[in-house]
């Protein structure tokens, strides 16, 4: 769907992107992750042809991207605004028409989205009369109105209350089911886990990781396992002996626990199970993958330290 190849960009002497390459497949939600100032927004602007790259190329559906392809892209920038004095309907109509829709089509889409979001009575309101969250909804509608093949969302959940965050998430999941491709740039790692299929992590203008969410989590796992069992906690700890380390525990009842255990040395999950069987009654055991939040911190911090040391 979208192929980014060796993109580099500098502003004055500051490097914003350094040889970044990745590809986004059709119908997936692709996470664009990275700390503030990593170069995500610059990359998004380059894809939207707002900023020109110094080096590298972008292919859209197999061909070098042109201005015409912009009609198939929906964009919700992080720094987003609307014309304050315009009415909601006129605002959406204007932006829809800029995206190549006819007036009639735009009005039909407005009806559809306003019904869906139950905001029909906002039509005649001026943007300045809306709350931040309300305006965010309008901005989201503006971005998806022309049914783009590729939707690029930069921090789409900021400014929304939890109910509206859910609403937007559901919309994104529906769009993915429709075969649309979504690039999601966010710091909200929970939503990345929930809706992203794959992601890349950019830090200090370079790509430092890429893969599916599970891959990223697996690559950064710390050998942590959870065991749910019946029995005595003392017996459990005694059984672990020196090859394993009890990291955390949850008490579920008088004799029911979930224990989080870290492997030491060459010991494996199999070894853990072996030492535990007979000592306690194992109900379930599983590997704990790191959250994307942990992955993010894990990947970004060493690079940051290195940079700071330099």
């Amino acid at each position: 769907m979208l192929e980014i190849k060796n993109i580099s960009k500098s502003f004055y002497r500051k490097e914003a992107l350094n040889d970044v390459s990745f590809s986004v497949r059709k119908g997936e939600v692709f996470g664009l992750l990275g700390p503030n100032g990593a170069g995500k927004t610059t990359l998004i602007r380059i894809i939207n042809r707002i900023v020109e790259q110094d080096k590298g190329s972008i292919r859209f559906e197999g061909n070098l991207m042109t201005e015409k392809d912009l009609l198939h892209i929906g964009y919700l920038p992080e720094e987003r605004g609307l014309y304050k004095s315009m009415t909601v309907q006129n605002q959406v109509l204007f932006l829809g028409r800029l995206r190549g829709l006819s007036k009639k089509d735009t009005l039909a889409k407005i009806d559809y989205w306003f019904d869906k979001f139950k905001i029909n009575d906002w039509r005649k309101k001026r943007i300045e009369e809306l709350s931040k969250g309300m305006a965010q909804k309008i901005q989201f509608i503006c971005a998806v109105l022309h049914e783009p093949k590729l939707l690029i969302l930069d921090e789409p959940f900021s400014g929304f209350d939890p109910i509206n965050v859910e609403l937007i998430k559901q919309e994104l999941i529906e769009m993915r089911a429709d075969g649309r491709t979504i690039i999601l740039s966010t710091h909200n790692m929970k939503s990345v886990e929930e809706i992203c299929d794959r992601a890349i992590l950019i830090h200090d203008s370079k790509k430092i990781a890429e893969g599916s969410i599970t891959e990223l989590q697996s690559e950064n796992k710390e050998g942590l396992y959870a065991v749910r069992f019946r029995g005595s906690m003392i017996a459990f700890v005694n059984a672990l002996w020196t090859g394993f380390e009890l990291v955390d525990k949850d008490i579920l009842g008088d004799d029911r626990f979930v224990a989080k255990v870290k492997m030491r040395g060459e010991n494996s999950f199999q070894d853990l199970l072996k030492v535990l069987i007979g000592q306690i009654e194992i109900e379930a055991a599983w590997e704990i993958l790191p959250s994307m939040q942990d992955v993010f911190i894990e990947l970004v911090q060493p690079v940051k330290k290195e940079a700071d040391e330099k």
């Binding site: 602007r45 920038p77 987003r80 304050k84 901005q139």
Partner: peptide, 16 residues
């Protein structure tokens, strides 16, 4: 105004 209320970025994604 367009610059300060940041609508310009939305516009620039559609027009040069």
């Amino acid at each position: 105004n367009e610059k300060s209320n940041r609508i310009v970025e939305v516009l620039l994604a559609s027009v040069s």
